[in-house]
Computed example of a mutant assay.
Amino acid sequence: MDNEQHSISRVLGVTANFDAALEVGRRTDFLCRNLRQASCRTYILGISGGVDSLAAGLLAQAAVLELRADGYDAQFIAMRLPYGVQADETDAQKSLGVIGPDRVVTVDIKPAADAMLEAVMVEGEDLVEQARKHFHLGNIKARQRMIAQYALAGSTRGLVIGTDQAAEALMGFFTKFGDGAADILPLAGLTKRRVRAIAEHMGAPAELVFKVPTADLESDAPLRPDEEVYGVTYDEIDDFLEGKAVTEPAGKRILKTYLASRHKRALPVAPINEMAG
Rank of each mutant, 00 (worst) to 15 (best):
D220W: 01
I254M: 11
G172A: 03
L35G: 00
L185D: 03
L59W: 00
V51P: 01
G231P: 02
Y234P: 00
G251V: 06
Q165D: 11
P111A: 00
A142H: 05
T233H: 00
A74V: 02
E228Y: 04
A92V: 01
G71A: 09
L58G: 11
L259S: 11
M1S: 08
T214I: 03
A115Y: 05
I8S: 07
I254V: 12
G158C: 01
G162R: 08
E242P: 00
Y258E: 05
G231E: 06
D183N: 13
I47Q: 07
R36A: 12
R132L: 14
A92H: 05
F18H: 03
Q165P: 00
D126L: 09
E125N: 15
R41K: 11
G154W: 10
Y258C: 02
L159Y: 04
I140K: 08
I184V: 04
L217R: 07
V11S: 14
V64C: 06
A38H: 03
F210Q: 15
R41C: 03
G251S: 04
H201L: 07
E274C: 15
V64M: 08
F240A: 09
R33S: 09
V64N: 01
Q93I: 09
A197E: 14
P225N: 09
S48V: 02
N34L: 13
L67W: 04
N139P: 03
F76T: 01
I47E: 09
L170E: 08
D226S: 11
H134D: 15
E200I: 03
T42C: 08
G97D: 06
D216R: 10
G57I: 00
E66H: 06
L117H: 10
D226Y: 07
G178W: 08
R253H: 09
R262F: 13
A169N: 10
L22Q: 13
V212G: 07
Q5P: 00
T156V: 05
D114W: 06
L54R: 01
P249A: 00
L217M: 06
M116Y: 15
N3M: 06
I198P: 00
E66R: 11
I109Y: 12
F30E: 00
M1Q: 07
K192C: 04
A167S: 15
Q130A: 13
K211V: 01
G49A: 05
Q75C: 13
P82T: 03
S95V: 10
G124K: 01
L96M: 01
S219V: 13
T233N: 07
Y230S: 10
G13V: 04
R262K: 14
E248Y: 10
T257R: 15
K176M: 04
R157S: 12
K133Y: 03
E227K: 00
A181P: 14
H263R: 15
K176A: 12
D91E: 07
Q61C: 10
Y258W: 07
G84Y: 00
E242S: 08
G277I: 14
D29V: 10
F177I: 05
I237W: 02
Y150F: 15
A221P: 11
P82W: 12
F177C: 09
I8G: 04
S219Q: 15
A276T: 15
A206Y: 04
